[in-house]
């Protein structure tokens, strides 16, 4: 009996150690993602931005792996169960490649054959949300502001 107890206590410590380890890994990965995100704010080079975005996607996949494998315990399940879950999800590789390529191709087609679409993406427009904060109420606010001014003038 004491033997059994010491075994389960050992197991308990192993599990807690694994949870601690995965928590630290997830936190570090998230912090690296955020550092990359902050760094990217001031970068204008498209190539470098794309490289950072690629790195963020790889970190995202690593986080997903640690959550599924350790927190959801999938790594410790039987191989057959792992396969019935992971193999269907492999369809995502095709989904992502096919649909993003399709979106990209649609943009190229429109840029080539739809002059209106191409033109719209070159016309700069004034920023809406900084003026007054609430764009759909901005006109109301503006009107309210102008009546106040009128009142001030009247008072003077």
């Amino acid at each position: 009996m004491s033997n059994h107890d010491s075994h389960s206590a050992e197991h308990h410590h192993d599990v807690i150690a694994e949870i601690k380890k995965v928590t630290i890994i997830l936190s570090v990965l998230t912090i690296v993602e955020l550092v990359l995100g902050f760094w990217m704010i001031d970068i204008t080079s498209e190539g470098l931005r794309l490289a950072i975005k690629g790195a963020i996607v790889i970190l995202m996949m690593a986080k997903a792996f640690y959550i599924v494998a350790y927190f959801m315990h999938l790594k410790h399940e039987i191989k057959n169960l792992i396969m019935t879950i992971v193999v269907p999800l492999a369809l995502f590789i095709w989904f992502i490649a096919a649909f993003l390529a399709d979106g990209n191709s649609f943009r190229n087609l429109r840029n080539n054959y739809d002059p209106h679409f191409k033109e719209q993406s070159t016309i700069k427009v004034p920023e809406k949300h900084h003026a007054g904060g609430e764009s759909h109420k901005a006109t109301e606010k503006h009107e309210a502001g102008s009546t106040e001014k009128h009142e001030e003038k009247a008072a003077h």
């Binding site: 169960l81 269907p88 995502f92 649909f99 979106g103 649609f106 943009r107 679409f117």
Partner: peptide, 29 residues
């Protein structure tokens, strides 16, 4: 087992949402 398969189907729902977001973003200038 059934919870795992439910989550797998839910993953496809979220995946479809996110991929349609990506597709639309890729098709816009």
């Amino acid at each position: 087992v059934m919870m795992w398969y439910f989550l797998m189907s839910d993953a496809f729902t979220f995946g479809a949402f996110l991929i349609s977001y990506g597709t639309v973003r890729f098709s816009t200038n």
